[in-house]
Every structure is written in C-alpha cells, then in structure tokens.
Design a protein around this nucleic acid. Structure first.
Lengths: 185, 185, 185, 185
DNA sequence: AATGAATGAGCGTTCATTCAT
DNA sequence: GATGAATGAACGCTCATTCAT
C-alpha cells in the first residue's frame, strides 16, 4: 500500500504544478484532485493544507531546477559556456510555473514547511554558485558580481512573459552585463 | 457632491494600489473599501466590477511611471545619465505594486477597458523609447537593443523582491549590459 | 411648484407600471427613476418605500380597469354584450402588468397603504358587479354565479401568457360557462 | 454515502418547492438550505445554480401532476368524470406552488436545463390530452376545444388565491363551459 | 423640492477543509 | 488509505434606503 500512496502523492504534485502553473495560487484544490485522478480527500491526506501543497510544489520545482544546474556542473564542459547555458535554462525552464516562486517569496513564513522552501531555494542558489565561481575563475564571468545578484536576475527573468525572441534578446543583454569587465574600463 | 465623489474615487484607487500591491488580484474589494474608509457600495459605484478596479489601478500606476519618465526626458540632462536614472527609477518606483502589471499582462483582454491598460502600457513604452533613442544617439547606450527588450527588462526587475543592495547590484549588471559595445569586442 | 411635484409623481408611477409590468416586484427602483427621468431621491420622496410604490402602482392600474368597466356600464348598450365585452377587456387589458396584482394579493397586509389596494380592488369588483347584475337581470348571464366567482376568473385569466388565439379560445369557453343555464338542464 | 446524498437532494427540492411556493423565485437559497436542514454548500453541490434549482423544482412539480393525471387515466373510470376530476385536482393540487410555473413560462430559455422544463410541461399536457380525448369521444366534453385551451385554463386557475368555496365555484363555471355544446344551440 | 453619492444588509456562488463511509 | 458529500466563511455584486448639497 505504501507505493500506492507514494504514487498518489506524486500524481497530486504533478497536477498541482500544472494547475498552479496556469493559475497561480488561485488554482483550486478540487481541480488538482480532478487532474490527478484522485478524490479531494486524498489530496488533503497528503497535504493537510493548501499552503503545504503549494510549498511542496515549489520545492519540487526548485529541486528540478537544482538538478538541472548540478547536471551542467558535472558535465565538465567549458566553465563560461556552462554558466551561460544554465542561466538561460533556468530562465526558460518553466516560465509560467516559476510565477509561483515569485508569489511565494513575497509573503512571510506562516508555517514550518516554509523552511523547506527556503532550504530548496538555497540548494538551487548553491548549485548556481558552483557554476558562477567556476566561470569567474575561468575569467569568463565578471569577478565583481555575487551569487545573490545572479540569483535575483534569474528569478526576475524567469517570470517574464512576452515574445520568445524579445525575451531571448533581453537575456542576452544581461549576459553581456555578466561578461568580464574590461580591465581598462 | 462632485468633488466628494472624485475624492472618494481617488481614495479608492489609492487603497486599491496598496491592497493589490500586497496581495495581487486576490486582494478583496471589501478590504479596499475598508482602507479607503468608504462603504463597499461606494467602491462598486465607481468601479462596477472588480476587474475594472484592477485595470484602473494598473492604468493609474502606469500613468505615474510614464510621468516620471517624461519628466526625465524634459529635464534636458545628459542623455545617457537620463536613461540610466530613469531605468532605475522605473524599477524601484513601486516594487511590490508592479506585481500587478505582471499579473495583468498574463491574461487575455476580456473587456473593453483592458484596451486602456494596453494603451497606458504603450504610453510608458513610448516614453522609455524617447530616452533610449537619445541615449543611443549620444553613444551612451548600445545601439543594438530595442525598446521592447529594455521594457521587458524593466518589467522583470520591477517585480523583484530582495535586499535593496543586492537588487541595486543586479540592476547595475543589467545597465552594464546596456552600455555601448566595445567596437573591437 | 406643486404642479411640478405632481407631474413627477405621475411620471414615476407610469415608469413603475412599465418596469413592474416587465419584471414584477423584482424591477429596481433605480431603473424606474431612470425611465421616469428623475433622480432616485425623487422617487423616494414621493414613495418613501418600495412597497408603497408597488401598491400605488397597483392602485393606479386597478383604477384604470375600474374606469373601463364603469364606462361600459354607462354606455347603455345591451346588458349581456356589455358584460362579456368588459370581461374580455379586463383580461386582455394589460396582461403582463396584472401579474403584479396576483403577486400583491398573495401576501399579507404589512402596512396601511395595503388598505388602499384592497379598497381599489373592491371598487373594481363593484364595477364588475354592476355589469354582472344587469346581465343576469337581462337573462344573458347565468343567475347562479357570484361576483366573487367572476372576479376570480378575471384575475386568473388576466395573468395568462400564451398564444393570443389560444387564450381567446379559453376565455370563450369560460364565457360559455357563464351563459344562462338551460332551464331543463 | 450515495443514499445520503440522494436524501439530501430530495430534502432540498422539497424545501425549494415550499420556499419558491411562498415567495416565487425571490425565495433565497439560504432559506431553502435552512429549511432543508443542510448547509448552503450542499444546495449548490446538488444544484450549481439557483436557476437550475428553480427548474428542477418546477420539473419535479410537473412530474407529480403528470403522475396524478396518468393515474386517473389508468383508473378506467368513466371518461367525463375522470376528465373533470383531474381538471380539479390539477388546479387545487398545489395552489401556491404552481405560481412558480407561471413565472417560469414567462421568461425565455437561458440554459439547457430549461428544455427539461419544457419537456416536463409537454408530458403533463400529453397526459391531459389523453383524458380530454376520451372525454370528448364519450361525448362528455365539448368537441370543439383543444388541449392547449384546456391547459391554459388549468394554468390560469392553478395560480388563483382566494376562498376555497369561491374558487371551487369558479372552476365549476369553467367545467360547465367545457361541457358538450347543445346540438341545437 | 430634487439630486445622486454613499451605505450596508443580503444574495448567489466558490472553495478549503472535515469526516462518515 | 481513499472517497466525495457536507460545511460555512468569504467573496463579488445588487439594491432599497438615507442624506448632504
């Protein structure tokens, strides 16, 4: 029975990512249950509160992004390229869905599980940091920028809506800003 | 009574900007009425639908930002400086509140008044364009970037939450990306 | 100024008959004011309560019907014909609007002015009685029926909706039922 | 739980018939919930819209009347008597409540479920037609009247309020009008 | 006397949450 | 464990009524 429960939990989380991705926190729990193919009671058994479901969804998504970043880091490719590619991937990774994140980080921490969100965000930040450091050491990324700044840029751009080409151009501008500063500049 | 009505309309809009700024569209009309110090009926007399109130709030905010940008353009200051200062101002102008904008631009245009939002957004874009063009002509801003890209960057960064100093640093990085490209680069 | 006020009162009553005729008591006071071309305050100055406005409208309508019936009675035409014609007129007189009446007579008498409604209804009943009696005396209407029965039939049929021809046929059936009974029956 | 749900649905419908019977469509859903002894949410779970609740109530009532008429038709009694008895039963069946019907048939058909109302009304009409035809074939009911006329008469009289004896007398008059026409008349 | 802005109770409806089965 | 019916607080909105001008 344990695996059944686990399977249900996963289906609920997947449905939640879909629904919250479309409607933000306004997405209804009932709709999530419907898409997950389970009863509403099952959703609440796994996530006693909507808040907890939202947070679990965010954590799951952050974990996914973290995995992406780590994979890049382990790829062993060229440091600057790895950093830039990951930067772009995190931004376009799941545009609509990261909206969630932005929303989440706007409010206080009303319950314990918010700590898990913070922890997950930190793990992503750390993964980004690895790539950033390497890029900087390789002289491919400007030395005078911090992970926090880079992380802020990723979050800001991840929520952007608009023409793909325009957004891509905008990201390009930002990456130019992250290029090494000319010594004589 | 006309002036009273106008005053109330303004108080409602101000309260709406506050509430929507904190909670997005989820902010309740009742709460807005409370903060404006008027009855719920008064809110609906001025804005027959919540949607219309949201849009009026967005328009008002965009108009404010547009005024800021235009004032800079007329200041007659140095072109590059004017552009960069305005860029920073639009971003920090009303952090929490611009969240609204992002939300708005995510959905379709269900009613006529949405056109006013679009029009107001275009006016802001145009005001930015003036500053951008001057900066480019003066050789103070890279020539190969478009208003749309710049506008996307402003919108993205305007919704950012976080330490003032970190955000400022991130904006600085972006402005570096907007600096003229080295000819020999 | 007196005549202005009187004129306004009349315009309001006319608008009320129109609106209540279309929507029953659900018609809004605001809509009545709009159609009467006066401010909402004016409506309430003349009729301090919606209830009173409804009743005044009913009274006005009943008075109109009463006048119709009395005119027939004074016409001096043939008694049976006069009765039958009036019977039909009262029914088709203002179909949709009499709906009001039916509604009214369903509830208790919560305020004094309801007495005026009752009085107006009695006046109509009396006018009908005159025509009925004459018809009976002339041997043109069955002798064993009472005004109350006739009045009930009028009220019932007045609210009927449906094809004109079908309703006319139904009224014809009822008039047949009101014809003198065969002595040998 | 299925049976509980069904029981609740029935209690809601019964309460709705009561409330709408007293106040027409103006009766509040909250009041219906109260009388049914359920929460407001339960009412909306079974009838997602007030409109649907109104229509379901009407359909239920019409079905009841139809059953009554059909039972008479199958009784195998004397044709004229069966027709007249049913005619009276349909009228006194649920006086106050049929008000609903009248209201319903006044408006257009804004949603699909209104079709069910129409269908239910047709079934009742058909049941009446069976009795009418038999009565006419038996020479107990005038041959020159149509179901539509009879149906109109039933609807009109069903909404009548007033002394039982007076209404009974009025119905008697109408039944006389439905009696076979004298050949030599 | 007329106006129409303001008020707030009340309504239809939604949705997170509980709990009997 | 899973289900889904039941619950009721809360929301958007309407409208009769009041009152400052």
């Amino acid at each position: 029975m344990r695996s059944d429960a686990q399977a249900n939990r996963d289906r609920v989380l997947a449905a939640a990512e879909e629904v919250f991705g479309e409607s933000g926190e306004a997405g209804s729990t009932e709709e999530i249950a419907r898409r997950a193919g389970v009863g509403i009671g099952t959703v609440f058994r796994h996530f006693p509160t909507k808040q907890l479901l939202v947070e679990a969804t965010v954590v799951r998504h952050l974990a996914l992004l973290t995995a992406t970043a780590r994979a890049r880091a382990e790829d062993g490719g060229e440091a600057g390229e790895a950093f830039r590619t990951t930067f772009r991937e995190l931004i376009s990774g799941a545009p609509a869905k990261l909206a969630l994140l932005a929303l989440r980080e706007r409010t206080g921490a009303p319950d314990d599980s918010a700590d898990e969100v913070r922890a997950a965000a930190l793990r992503l930040r750390d993964a980004v940091e690895v790539l950033l450091s390497r890029g900087q050491e390789a002289g491919e990324v400007r030395a005078d920028t911090t992970v926090d700044e880079v992380y802020v840029l990723i979050r800001a751009l991840a929520n952007t809506r608009g023409d793909r080409s325009v957004v891509d151009g905008a990201v390009g501008v930002v990456l130019d800003g992250l290029a090494p500063r000319r010594s004589g500049a």
